[in-house]
Nucleic acid binder design. Structure first.
Lengths: 230, 230
DNA sequence: GTAAAATTAGACACCATTGTCTAAAACGTC
DNA sequence: GACGTTTTAGACAATGGTGTCTAATTTTAC
């Protein structure tokens, strides 16, 4: 559809903006409604109304409900993926204080990838429709945030080689790190409440403290012990 | 409706058994279908057919869909609750080997309360309908398996007072224990696959090892350290 | 300003589902 | 075997959703 700009600069930015705005508006509303009501419970009318758009416009852009659903999933996954990469790139590879820096990283991870709207959507989605759409689950695991575990494992492996951590199984450690970060947030996230920044920090502190106690090398572990008993 | 048994022993056990069997069959099928399709996606026809019962019979017993749904939730919660209590009562209060016994307990917990059909149902349910039916979530948290954390905290507190563990915050430790046990299983449970007994045991071992490293008192911790380096 | 494209409201056929009703059949008790 | 209860199949109206169509209106491009 895209024509070379030299011959046909027909569709100006403005026109695309108009269409694009509608598309985005629909996508956003659809994500919201699908997340709230599930696929079967969501109606096109509701989505259209929430997007401030006529029902017909929805059909013009996305032919049918299934199609819209797929588009929403793809959109959310792309965004979540980008956010995940961006957050992972802030992993403390040369930490000043490993515990502090890991905790700060854990907060960013919760905030950007787990507790936000996209994270919530994907969790609900994979949980409720993952069995019926196996390719959805597979795509989530391989190209989406599901691979977060693998990525973290690689990062921990580097810290371990530097002698800052003492880890035997990086994949297990990565999964445990994630699990610990989630431990205090699960109640909130399950219910759909976004935790406050303070809650996020407390959860991260608790998680990292336990993680460090389990995986810090002897020297640092001794340090942590004295801190604990102090 | 119930009449005193001295005047009207009309309905014999047999007749009740017939009705009871139908009721249970419907309840079971409904749980299955609601779990698979969600509330909106489940149809009475499908439930009736899966229960080998006519649609009218479903309506005779449970008037309307909402009512049936509530009944299913209550039934599953009661069963899950009973199973939870039963499993918690097997917590190793006087352990021979704390690590081994905790791991065995973790396996029982996963097997009986988390990875079974009821656990899966409740997780999907609370995740997908918890926001729309707040009382459902509240009931899950207070009277259902949601309080598993609190119960575990009390048990850990006893171990801690005995000097077998060194825990500062029992609630945090309990949540972390559960999170660690789930860490390796989340992928499977999210997808809906029931993990094998071997996977359960590996997951439990990994979880308890990390938990012990973080919370074992100095003497035992030294022991674990030597084991680790050996 | 004009023409093309996009958007809108509304009507529409179609289908699935809910919940009711009825008459026949099956089951249980006595 | 007669009676009351439960179950069943099927028809049924009502509802709400999907997806299509059309004609009018608005937006955008030039």
């Amino acid at each position: 559809m895209k024509s070379p700009s030299d011959t046909v600069p027909k569709m100006s930015v403005h026109s695309q903006r108009g269409q694009c705005a509608k598309r985005l508006s629909i996508l956003e509303a659809a994500a919201e409604v699908f997340c709230r009501q599930g696929f079967a419970g969501a109606s096109i009318d509701e989505i259209a109304s929430e997007a401030c758009v006529s029902r017909q416009t929805v059909y013009n852009h996305y032919r049918e409900k299934d199609n819209l659903f797929m588009a929403v999933v793809e959109d959310v996954m792309d965004r979540a993926n980008a956010m995940l990469f961006s957050t992972l790139s802030s992993f403390p590879e040369n930490p000043e204080s490993l515990e502090d820096d890991l905790a700060a990283f854990a907060v960013r991870l919760s905030h950007n990838c787990i507790c936000n709207q996209d994270g919530k959507f994907l969790r609900k989605l994979v949980q409720s429709e993952g069995e019926r759409y196996p390719h959805l689950f597979e795509s989530w695991r391989q190209h989406g945030p599901g691979k977060i575990g693998t990525a973290l494992a690689a990062l921990f492996s580097r810290l371990s080689h530097k002698g800052l951590l003492q880890i035997d199984d990086f994949d297990v450690a990565a999964r445990q790190f994630l699990a610990l970060v989630n431990a205090d947030l699960q109640m909130s996230t399950l219910f759909g409440v976004t935790p406050t920044e303070a809650e996020l920090e407390t959860a991260a502190r608790n998680a990292v403290r336990t993680f460090m106690r389990a995986y810090a090398p002897p020297a640092v572990q001794a340090n942590a012990s004295t801190l604990k008993t102090a």
